[in-house]
Design a protein around this nucleic acid. Structure first.
Length: 578
RNA sequence: GCCGGUAUAGUUUAGUGGUAAAACAGAUCCUUGGUAAGGAUCAGCGGUAAGUUCAAUUCUUACUUCCGGCACCA
């Protein structure tokens, strides 16, 4: 991963490299038509229409070779300004460039850049000569919709990276390798955390080790929310069509919902927990004195996600939201949101996760409620974010259909950004469900409602944690914390069992490796299984009534009494050290 | 859903138009070992369905899974 500053510095380089790619592709496939070739966070891509020819990964080295050949030519990259007429004439054979030119505003200066006999319409900036383009690599080829719209035809996209030095390029390629090693799908399999069967694509199974991790996270979640004044509920997985019509999901979310017939009526499996939460609120009368009500639910939802979207635990068809609905008075909105932002910050920090906050605003179509109420809510969220001391990017049109939201984005090991936490202001559902509370003067008032999640989805969050920690979880989270290995099962086996029982008694998740295997073999396995502490017990330890422990990844051992070791573990667990 | 790729043992991979190999894991036995793989033996395999062929794991097609993107999204 490179930081923003560096990526800005590399912009002209990558931009020029995209042109180099285009020139090479044009040379190899003269019929190629080009759409756009922008610089992205890591490198660049170019969208190309190759007619009937489809590229595969095998074509990349060939194109790369051609690029190297062209770059060696040491051609100056020259900028030209064009009038609209000149530009339209110059690119008259390329409908994509004509499209670009026609969509430029009148006051924009049209420029193109020429290297040798290849010219591309472009805003720049570029490096001075093709000879600077030496350390690049084409990474992958894929399809990409023209103008990013799935109604349009698909072009072919080639991704690449370019650096100033061979060393930087290699560093980036090593980063990609490391990311592959951390892939939660791979580690999840190796560590026995979860599986996905082809009998249920997108429907993950949690295995015993994964279940330990999951239970720890859920218990942690309940504890932290209890401290924050939440109460908890569990609402049904299925509810009838009428409810979803009332909530607006039937009109706005129907294509993602799984349904079933029960006694000739249509029921839908919940894609969200909110309508159930509404019914719970309505189940009793509420006084203004009771607000805010913070009502949490670890709610399992099902959504029909497109098959191509599925991705390990990151994108699934059933997941558990660490949901909560907060019902409050108008005067409590801002402080409640600030309190929430701080709460979320505290939780993420505990895991050492960094994040960005974005404000997602009203969608263009598919939304409910008045534009005025949307504008008001958007302003409240933005202001609260600022009050809590955070920057907040705007993500236009990405709000839920019932309200705008603050989204918390966490990066995975590949630098891909995943939405986890979200705070959503909803002044539509309370209306639809006619939620009320009794105010001071005895009159009925409409409460304001917030939806919010912190992990987002327990499944996704676990996926992120696996990659974040590269499978080596902090002690408080690791499914297996300690493994006890007697040097010889015959001579120290009994002592090892005693130590093992003692640790178990103290709620340490410990295993005993009493197998007839060489010490080195068992130590190796303890390392590959990413267990935090390995205890080695031989004659020395048995005689002195001590243990020797080795921390994962370290070579040295430390010898202490069993009691000292247990205290050390308890300290590390209770402080949730990372 | 779209573009491309992919599918061989529990796992990771090799190989082949004449029904398949290795490593690790597993079982049994030998080995009694102080910081990342001791040895032997055994057992275990071609996503599904069609087609081409004397013969298909290998070629073709469809479906399905998974992977990388796109679109969508917690």
């Amino acid at each position: 991963m490179i930081n923003i500053k560096e990526s800005e510095k590399l912009m002209p380089l990558n931009h020029s490299c995209a042109h180099l790619l285009a020139e090479a592709v044009k040379k190899l496939y003269p019929e190629a038509k080009f759409w756009v070739g922008p610089v992205i966070e890591d490198g660049f891509y170019y969208d190309i229409d190759l007619g009937d020819k489809t590229l595969t990964d095998d074509d990349l080295p060939v194109i790369e070779k051609e690029m190297k050949k062209i770059a060696k030519g040491n051609k100056k990259i020259i900028r030209h300004e064009l009038t609209r007429e000149e530009a339209l004439d110059k690119f008259k054979d390329d409908p994509y460039k004509i499209d670009l030119i026609n969509n430029m505003s009148d006051d924009e200066v049209i420029t193109c850049y020429t290297q040798g006999d290849f010219t591309d319409l472009c805003r720049g900036p570029h490096v001075e000569s093709t000879k600077e383009l030496r350390h690049f690599k084409l990474l992958r080829v894929s399809g990409a919709y023209f103008k990013g719209d799935s109604k349009n035809k698909m072009l072919q996209r080639i991704y690449g990276v370019c650096y100033e030095t061979e060393e930087d390029l290699n560093k980036h390629l090593e980063f990609l390798e490391e990311a592959k090693r951390r892939d939660h799908k791979k580690l999840g399999k190796e560590l026995g955390l979860f599986m996905i069967s082809e009998y249920g694509p997108g429907f993950p199974f949690f295995l015993p080790n994964g279940m330990i991790l999951r239970n720890i996270l859920e218990n942690f979640w309940y504890e932290e929310h209890t401290k924050e004044g939440y109460v908890f509920i569990k609402t049904p997985i299925m509810l009838n069509q009428e409810l979803w019509e009332k909530s607006g999901h039937w009109a706005n979310y129907r294509e993602n919902m799984y349904t079933s017939e029960i006694d000739d009526r249509t029921f839908a499996i919940k894609p969200m927990n909110c309508p159930g939460g509404m019914l719970v609120y309505k189940n009793s009368l509420h006084s203004y004195k009771d607000l805010p009500i913070r009502c949490g639910e670890l709610g399992q939802v099902h959504r029909h996600e497109a098959s191509g979207a599925l991705n390990g635990l990151f994108r699934v068809r059933t997941f558990t939201q660490d949901d909560a609905h907060i019902f409050m008075r108008e005067d409590q909105i801002e402080s409640e949101i600030i309190r929430l932002i701080n709460f979320i910050d505290r939780i993420y920090s505990l895991f050492g996760l960094s994040y960005d906050i974005e404000l997602s605003t009203r969608p263009e179509d598919k939304f409910i409620g008045s534009i005025e109420s949307w504008n008001r809510s958007e302003a409240i969220l933005q202001n609260a974010c600022k009050q809590a001391g955070h920057d907040c990017k705007i993500n236009p049109g990405d709000g839920a259909f019932y309200g705008p939201k603050l989204d918390f984005h966490i990066k995975d090991s590949l630098g891909r950004v995943w939405q986890c936490g979200t705070i959503q202001l909803d002044n539509n559902l309370p209306e639809r469900f006619d939620l009320t509370y009794i105010d001071k003067d005895g009159s009925k008032k409409r409460p304001i409602m917030l939806h919010r999640v912190i992990f987002g989805s327990i499944e996704r969050f676990i996926g992120i944690l696996i990659e974040h920690f590269a499978g080596l979880f902090p002690l408080w989270l690791n499914p297996v914390q300690v493994i006890v290995i007697p040097v010889s099962s015959e001579y120290q086996g009994e002592y090892a069992s005693k130590v093992y029982e003692e640790l178990k008694k103290n709620d340490i998740r410990v295993e005993l490796d009493n197998r007839n295997e060489k010490l080195g073999y068992r130590l190796r396995e303890a390392q590959t299984r990413k267990i935090n502490y390995t205890l080695i017990l031989g004659d020395k330890e048995k005689t002195d009534n001590t243990i020797s422990y080795r921390k994962h990844g370290e070579k040295d051992t430390t010898t202490v009494s069993v009691e000292e070791f247990i205290n050390l573990l308890k300290e590390e667990i209770s402080t949730k050290k990372i």
